[in-house]
């Protein structure tokens, strides 16, 4: 597994799948929801952690050129 948090999430996920046939207690529901929550954040964070394609920064450079103000460095420096 990639991370510690990931490992815990996997364990909870496996638990959820195993318990699928049984009626859920409140405690089980909570564990299941936490597993889903961790997975959901992983799906989102996976994209957040991707490198940003050049087109994005190119676009912002483009708006600079069409703007009569001084050029703005994307690193935020003068």
């Amino acid at each position: 597994m990639a991370t510690c948090a990931g490992r815990d999430a996997w364990r909870a996920w496996g638990y959820m799948k195993q318990s699928a046939k049984k009626p859920s207690s409140l405690g089980e529901t909570r564990i299941n929801q936490e597993a889903i929550g961790a997975r959901l954040r992983q799906l989102f964070d996976d994209v957040v952690n991707e490198p940003v394609p050049d087109e994005f920064l190119d676009l912002l450079r483009g708006v600079d050129e069409s703007n009569p103000v001084e050029d703005v460095d994307l690193d935020g420096k003068q």
């Binding site: 989102f44 994209v47 957040v48 991707e50 994005f56 912002l60 001084e70 460095d73 935020g76």
Partner: peptide, 26 residues
């Protein structure tokens, strides 16, 4: 145009790109 403000705005906007991509993907 306010260059200082624009620069601050742009820096913050650039920092949000990864989040915007993730939300767009969802």
């Amino acid at each position: 145009s306010d260059p200082v403000r624009d620069r601050a705005f742009k820096t913050e906007l650039v920092g949000l790109i990864p989040q915007l991509r993730a939300f767009a993907r969802s």
